[in-house]
Amino acid sequence: MLLISCPNCGSRDETEFHYGGQAHVAYPENPNELNDREWAEFLFYRDNTKGAFAERWLHSTGCRQWFNMLRDTVTYDIQAVYPMGAARPDKSAPAPESGTASTAPDSTTTGTAAPSIAATSTATSTAPASATAPEGATK
């Protein structure tokens, strides 16, 4: 049983929560321009990370609020709990590398769509790096 620290209610049992899948999957900017494969990838294809994984959770029998959580899929170690719309905490370093397009969304956390598009684009591009990173990051 995981003990999850809800940002509103504090530490509670895992049974009080619902899992919301991978976080930072942005709705496509122009869904009509996607072909079937891209649309299917948006709908159904998710990372299967070994190591630190950003996911959404809902405290369904508590405050009924969504939040993001960074969890290690191997050790189940909860590394961070952060609000919806915020950038992934351990991805703050690679964001500036990808140029001006991603630094702007990072500075404005109000728009939910724009930052997460940048987050996923950097996440997919740095996916191989993140697969190896957790070992160094956790130690």
């Binding site: 209610c9 509670r12 049992d13 049974t15 009080e16 029998t61 508590g62 405050c63």
Partner: peptide, 10 residues
């Protein structure tokens, strides 16, 4: 007062 589960009942 806390929102929780008692006997698996919310």
């Amino acid at each position: 007062a806390l929102n929780t589960e008692v006997g698996n009942i919310p």
